Simulated assay, not measured.
Amino acid sequence: MKKIKALLLVSAIIIAASCRVHAQEGWFKRFVQKTISDTTAPGESSFRIYPTLGYSPETSFEFGLSSLLIFQANKDTLNRLSEVQAFTFVTLEAQYGIWLDNAIYGDKDKWFFLGRTRFQRFPLLYYGIGPETVGEDPALIDANYILFKQRVLRKIKPNFFAGPEVDYQQLYNTNFEQPDNHTYDKPLGSDGTRNIGLGAALVYDNRHNVLNVRKGFFGEISFLKYSSGLGSDFNFQGVNLDVRSSHPVSARNVLAWQLLGNFYSGNVPFNQLALMGGEMIMRGYYYGRYRDKNMIAGQVEHRWLPFGFSKRFGAVAFAGTAVVAPKLSAFTFKHIRPSGGVGLRYLLFPKKDIYLRLDVGFTKDGPGFYLFTGEAF
């Protein structure tokens, strides 16, 4: 998706931290100073909230607020850093949404809660299903969307967790708008769908800071089954695999890689197929630009956090590949899609080593811009 995102905070940070210009006393200066400072003591929780501004052709201007809460259980610095991120937005096209992501570790890792929640009225661009789809004139599916996905994991042994997983997704009040120069067959679920999945997840995780992993390994395999007996409109199942590893090259440099696999079977609605693109992996592609029942993706990233000549600013360079297919035997090299890009980093929480990231991903479809707190993986 050719979506330009600019954060008002970035301008304030650059002005306040780099240029050091003299501003008049007032609410804006106090806001900037509070946002870029990190005065919390070790073990104490930290909270930030800041405005966002974005633009895309299908939404017009987008105004929002992002917030981040980070803490350690019992204020113990030996416990892992937990994070809860929230983002709410509204656009000039009367679209709106609330996003919430959580990675919460209990005292001494006894429990691990990993999940995300979404509610939004937001257009979905639909390019079709399969590894070869039309690159122009996508359909526009305007709908209300609810997602609640949560894993409740219990520590089995150090760094190893297991537990149940639930996934609830609903698409309603849908309107499928065909483009002027192309007609799509309406996919499964395009008139609205509700699906509930239950399953289990196994996770190995020795990361201490999930928002900026300088050294650590994360591996997850999960199984989810959606059935009419649970209240789902469609019967299908899926296996998901996510492996991430980060390796320090020097005191400031980190080399990280990720492998991701989604494998579904049954009557899978279009919005719950394996989706390529987005802000996490295959940056530069619109989320769902390519979709099918199966996907394999990988990426590698080099991080300079921070630069040797700066205490606050850093950068990354990344590259990735992915492929989708209707079944495992249908994966082919000719359908592999590449992506790559660069990013700028600003150290938002110095005492907790957490950065604000602005990434630009490049693909054959054009650039994609992403602005979030914490690294992509």
Rank of each mutant, 00 (worst) to 15 (best):
K29W: 08
Q170A: 15
Q24Y: 08
L7A: 09
R118F: 12
R252Q: 03
V360K: 07
P51L: 05
L7M: 15
I146D: 00
N102M: 09
F263P: 05
S339K: 06
W27S: 08
T52I: 00
L198T: 11
E83L: 03
T77A: 12
D353W: 04
A297N: 11
L348R: 04
V249G: 01
I129G: 06
L188M: 02
K215A: 15
G106Q: 00
T373E: 10
E136V: 15
V249N: 07
K334E: 13
D185E: 11
V316S: 08
F87W: 08
T363W: 02
I296L: 15
Y184N: 07
A200K: 01
H335C: 01
L9K: 00
F63T: 11
L328F: 15
L347F: 03
V268R: 08
R252F: 07
A317W: 09
N271C: 07
L100Y: 02
V21W: 11
T59R: 15
F223L: 06
V84I: 13
S228L: 07
G197M: 01
F223M: 04
S67K: 02
T52C: 01
D142C: 05
I141K: 05
L124P: 03
P367M: 03
A274Q: 13
I98F: 15
R283N: 10
F218H: 10
G97Q: 11
S82D: 00
A6P: 12
V203L: 09
R283C: 15
A143R: 08
R291T: 05
T193M: 14
M276V: 14
F122D: 12
N271A: 14
R121E: 08
Q95Y: 14
L188S: 00
L328R: 15
K3V: 02
P51N: 04
Q258M: 07
E132N: 15
Q178M: 06
L8D: 01
Q170N: 13
R207W: 00
T321Y: 09
Q24K: 14
G216H: 08
